[in-house]
């Protein structure tokens, strides 16, 4: 498949209460093999998927939050977080897991995958996408 499309995965749901966050992540991981232009957006309660310190030992469910840290190794390094959603939940960037990737075009320098963007900026990113998968 020669065509490259811009895929945007939109995450608006918190983890653990429902399975959407986990199964969305599974699509992202499989999709990474297709060499498309991939971006992830975290909006509304979706920002809770990336919070630090998740510990699921007490609820008997797998803690899948470490998987987000591996996304950079799959060339998934455009992670957009809506600033308004973070602020509405009393969160800052420091409350989120640091997600990094190594930039092969810049002597493998370690860079941040997370970009906190305004509603206007995110609106533009969405509009430029070819395929939007919502979870």
């Amino acid at each position: 498949m020669s065509e490259t499309k811009k895929f945007l995965y939109v995450n608006r749901k918190a983890p653990y209460g429902t399975i959407y966050a986990l199964e969305s992540l599974e699509v992202v991981l499989i999709g990474a093999a297709f060499e498309q232009d991939v971006a992830l957006a975290f909006i509304d309660d979706g920002v809770y998927q990336l919070t630090q310190g998740q510990d699921t030992t007490g609820i008997g469910v797998k803690n899948f939050s470490p998987t987000y840290k591996a996304l950079g190794d799959f060339d998934v390094n455009k992670i957009y977080i809506e600033k308004e959603s973070l602020e509405a939940r009393g969160l800052t960037l420091d409350d989120l897991m640091p997600l990094k990737y190594e930039d092969e075009d810049d002597d493998w320098a370690e860079k941040d995958s997370i970009h906190v963007v305004s509603s206007e900026e995110l609106s533009e990113i969405m509009d430029q996408s070819d395929v939007v998968l919502s979870f």
């Binding site: 498949m1 499309k5 499989i30 999709g31 093999a33 297709f34 498309q36 395929v131 998968l133």
Partner: peptide, 12 residues
């Protein structure tokens, strides 16, 4: 079948 079928649907 696998999730790749969904990605392929998005591409095609």
């Amino acid at each position: 079948s696998g999730l790749g079928q969904l990605i392929e649907a998005g591409i095609q």
